[in-house]
């Protein structure tokens, strides 16, 4: 726990009984951290001139970004602007798609993860991912969390402790501690998504990528995931793709705004980064007209 937990955050993490409705947050759950943020992020990951192509189609081009330690970075922009594509290229999940190719440099601690000799399996272990739709394995809650550590050959002295720790970090332990052996499908959508986060935490990654993690959830479940992200920021770097601008405003320290440009002739839409800055700057005083138009709802 390196960073500065604001008093607000800790109160939000006071465990609420599962059935008591929690208040919905429309305001930032923490006072702005702007003054604590360095001007340039303390890089854990970085993109240098990244292009992602699917066959001949260039999905996103010329991205330069730095993702900082203990920061939440939001990627926002209209549909088809390549933000999810970029996210999936950050832990080499795009390798699984036929014809997908990444050029430029994506680095983790300065090391290019697409360099020759780099094992994509190891990359994915260190850069975890939470998906849009909660996708627990058809196994028990316990086995969902223990699966990752088992397959990557972690030898925890006590698997039970590891599972408890991950579930506690994901703010799910009190709700499931009495039914660890039950199927994960019995949980609600929000609980399933927190289970997916617990599963990701269990392998102790350094970065967590989240691809619209709340788009399938109701506002209460969304609020809980957002509180959880606040908590997780103290240990991990988080990159989140979201369609919900209020969500980006609520949780992100920095925000990157993408847009899509239609190529002349083919009409193929290629995503590009427009602006990347502290979230308050992006939302209150963007330097690019397109960002301002998007934020104020005039386009996208």
């Amino acid at each position: 726990m390196s960073a500065q937990p604001s008093p607000e955050v800790t109160t939000h993490q006071e465990v609420t009984p599962p059935h008591e409705p929690q208040e919905v947050h429309f305001e930032p759950a923490h006072p702005t951290r702007d003054d604590q943020l360095p001007d340039t992020p303390d890089a854990v990951m970085a993109c240098k001139n990244v292009d992602v192509r699917y066959g001949d189609f260039r999905a996103v081009t010329g991205v330069n970004l730095i993702f900082g330690y203990n920061e939440i970075t939001a990627l926002i922009g209209p549909s088809g602007c390549g933000k999810s594509t970029l996210l999936r290229s950050l832990n080499r999940m795009n390798d699984l798609i036929l014809g997908a190719r990444v050029t430029g440099e994506v680095t983790l601690h300065g090391q290019d993860i697409y360099a020759r000799g780099i094992d994509p399996i190891e990359v994915r272990r260190r850069i975890g991912m939470v998906f849009q739709k909660p996708n627990p394995f058809p196994k028990s809650i316990y086995d969902n969390v223990a699966y990752g550590p088992r397959v990557i050959g972690m030898k925890p002295s006590n698997m039970d402790d590891l599972v408890e720790e991950a579930l506690t970090q994901a703010a799910l332990w009190t709700e499931v501690k009495d039914k660890l052996k039950q199927s994960a499908f019995g949980l609600s959508g929000g609980q399933q998504q927190r289970l997916c986060i617990a599963r990701t935490i269990a392998v102790r990654p350094e970065v967590i990528l989240m691809d619209e993690p709340c788009s399938a959830l109701d506002p209460i479940a969304t609020g809980r995931i957002e509180d959880l992200m606040e908590e997780l920021r103290q240990v991990y770097a988080i990159v989140i793709v979201t369609h919900n601008m209020q969500q980006a405003a609520r949780v992100a320290d920095r925000t990157a705004f993408f847009t899509a440009l239609a190529a002349e002739g083919t009409g193929d839409r290629t995503g590009m980064l427009v602006e990347y800055d502290k979230t308050t700057k992006i939302f209150e005083n963007p330097s690019d007209k397109r960002t301002e138009d998007y934020i104020s709802g005039r386009f996208g």
Binding site: M93, I121, R125, M129, K133, N135, Y147, V151, I152, R199
Partner: peptide, 27 residues
Amino acid sequence: VPAEIREASLALGATPLQTMWKQTLPS
């Protein structure tokens, strides 16, 4: 078997072979 299951397993650092043996095939 939904692609999400394979993706989730691979994203945790499982190899394609582990994913096949422990997730796809049992399902």
